[in-house]
């Protein structure tokens, strides 16, 4: 089973990287960008019987830092063989 973990900074946490990207987009002439937040995408290939609880614990214990980050778990549809 393919699982994507989306890690993003919590609202209210300053994102220097997002701010720099925002600045660069404007410098390239793209108007109308109101805000940019940068995060991480972590793809896991796990056995099909991996529980939601285990995925949740993986995020809480390592993949995200709960002080500054949120995470969202997305299970990808299996591709037809």
């Amino acid at each position: 089973m393919k699982v994507q973990i989306h890690v993003s900074l919590k609202a209210g946490v300053l994102d220097p990287q997002g701010r720099a990207i925002h600045h660069e987009l404007e410098a390239l002439g793209f108007g109308g960008v109101n805000d940019v937040r940068a995060g991480k995408l972590i793809e896991l290939d796990v056995s099909d019987d991996t529980s939601d609880e285990d995925l949740d614990q993986m995020c809480r214990k390592l993949l995200a830092n709960m002080v500054i980050e949120n995470y969202r778990i997305e299970k990808l549809e299996q591709e037809a063989a």
Binding site: P16, Q17, N65
Partner: peptide, 17 residues
């Protein structure tokens, strides 16, 4: 120390990058 939970908070990328 912050990542291990011995100290509170987190250390992020410097504000000026």
């Amino acid at each position: 120390l912050t990542e291990s939970g011995l100290l509170p908070g987190a250390l992020m990328r410097n504000a000026a990058q």
